[in-house]
Amino acid sequence: MQDEKTLHDEQQGLPGGPAEIDTDRRKFLTKVGWGSLAGFLAINSYAFLRFFYPRVLFEPPSQFKVGFPNDYPPGTVNSQYQREFGTWIIRLQDGRFFAMESKCTHLGCTPSWLESQKKFKCPCHGSGYYISGLNFEGPAPRPMDRFKISIAEDGQLQVDKTIKFPGVPGKESNEVYPQSLLKA
């Protein structure tokens, strides 16, 4: 105890002496130590978050072919690609095609096409849509979304889910998005 006190007094007695230098070094090392830990944790936190976003998905492709135009009679809704691709291929009475996402605009359930009533009906909360995707009953806030449909080189219809035509509230998508319709 006595020794420490003596040492302390001696160090205080030396202006700019080893005591101050040591304190600076200790402060510096403390900063380096805590800084390294903080950096380590920051990098790890980033890695942990990034980890939840996989690079490769084993989901169906976003562009797919759905057969030839003559396979589809006018005025029908084809639900063949609903399960795998979440898409209906619809041909209107006038022969024009469009592809619509099978996803209710309320909370994302899959509506069913009811042929006898000529409407889409969502089983979750009862939203109803006309064949064009325009909502007319239930809690749905807007018409259902459409995807780009075109003719591929081999003459088949091709759907591109990366190009989307989102339904506008209260508007008929046939009029808002003429480019979503395909004449074939």
Binding site: L49, P54, E59
Partner: peptide
């Protein structure tokens, strides 16, 4: 493909992940 839903589901649809 880069939002919070993607991180929760491990993909863009409700599936095996």
């Amino acid at each position: 493909y880069n939002d919070i839903r993607f991180a929760l589901l491990g993909g863009a649809q409700v599936g095996g992940n």
